[in-house]
């Protein structure tokens, strides 16, 4: 389980520390406040625990800076500067270990960046993680993996990673009851189940098999969630990262998706989401039960320095600033301005 993350002069962050919930972490904030960056770094740390690859290289691959020069991930400044990040994780025995990456803006290659903390202990306890990016990749799966392995193509690694996860074979043995129920609610929402044939995904329903390219993007996302649950990627102790789940998803389906995410959390999956969507936030607010663990993290730029800071709360109504509700607030302001013509000003 990830416990916290710290940044210093890394990408958009001057200095930031975020403490995570062991359950669900929801990041809100305007564009450019680094929500996705937090998810990518945390995901890279989880991924290497299992793949045993280099942390710096993974960071470089998921961000894909220009020319793959890792030093470009240091926060821009007019002078030479050093940046760092640290991810802290709690192991099953309660022990906490950290993984740190330090680099300068002149560092060109990942192997020149410094890794410290407990990199050995980190990879000795593997963890399963999946990152669902904003753009759907399921319809583009055929041939994409082999193309990525053979050629240098300009794609952040999260895209090929999710396809790799989707093609993992089924877990051995029968599906346990809670996961079976989750799969059934997804099947009900999608009106079918997912099958893979020769690197191509299909939604199988009573009307026949429909290839993913012909499916609405929202259903493709639900299909992906179905696959990750079915093939055992999302089990107790795993971590799910989902960047803007609302993209292309009909608001009516949000209720199902949020219900499934809450249930996964109850089964021991740690979840990280970013969102710009009011319905998602409210769904979490409404469907949360007493023992659920949810933290809302609001990322914002301070008025005086313009740097990014975070405010975290477990109570939706106390979330402040709330970039999503502020948008509705601006509609209220404009309405008053238009119809009351300055009265009370």
């Amino acid at each position: 389980m990830l416990e916290k993350i710290k940044f210093e002069k890394f990408t958009a962050f001057e200095k930031l520390e975020v403490k995570f919930s062991p359950g669900i972490n929801i990041f809100v904030g305007e564009n450019g406040t680094g929500k996705t960056h937090i998810l990518k770094v945390a995901y890279a740390a989880c991924d290497i625990a299992k793949s045993k690859g280099g942390f710096a290289e993974k960071i470089n691959n998921v961000f894909y800076p220009s020319g793959k020069q890792i030093g470009r991930l240091v926060k821009r400044s007019s002078v030479s500067s050093n940046g760092s990040l640290e991810v802290v994780r709690k192991l099953d025995d309660g022990k906490k270990i950290a993984l740190r990456l330090s680099l300068s803006n002149h560092t060109t290659k990942p192997d020149k960046a410094k890794i410290s903390g407990s990199p050995k202990a980190w990879t000795e306890s593997p963890m399963e993680a999946a990152y669902i990016p904003v753009k759907d990749m399921m319809a583009n799966a055929p041939g994409f993996r082999s193309l990525y392995e053979e050629r240098e193509i300009h794609f952040e690694e999260i895209y090929v990673d999710i396809i790799r996860k989707a093609f993992l074979p089924l877990l051995k043995g029968p599906t346990d009851k809670p996961r079976k129920q989750l799969l059934e609610s997804l099947q009900e929402a999608m009106d079918g189940k997912v099958v893979a044939k020769n690197e191509e995904f299909f939604l199988r329903s009573k009307h026949g098999e429909l290839e993913f390219t012909l499916l609405a993007e929202g259903f493709r996302k639900m299909g992906l969630l179905w696959i990750l649950i079915q093939n055992g990627t999302l089990l107790n102790g795993s971590v799910l990262f989902w960047d803007e789940p609302e993209t292309n998803l009909n608001p009516r389906l949000m209720k199902t998706v949020v219900g499934i995410l809450l249930e996964l959390q109850r089964l021991g999956v740690q979840i990280f989401l970013t969102t710009h969507d009011y319905v998602i936030l409210k769904e979490f607010d409404l469907q949360t039960k007493k023992d659920d663990n949810i933290l809302f993290h609001s990322l914002y730029r301070t008025k005086d320095t313009g740097e990014i800071e975070v405010a975290s709360t477990d109570d939706y109504l106390k979330l402040s600033p709330n970039a999503i509700d502020d948008t509705f607030g601006s509609i209220v302001d404009r309405e008053i301005e238009k119809s009351m013509e300055g009265l009370g000003k």
Binding site: V332, I336, S339, L343, G344, K345
Partner: peptide, 17 residues
Amino acid sequence: KSCQVVNVAKWNENFPK
């Protein structure tokens, strides 16, 4: 002429008088 529905924070922002 008009109808507005606001919370305390929005009231104070829009009607400082």
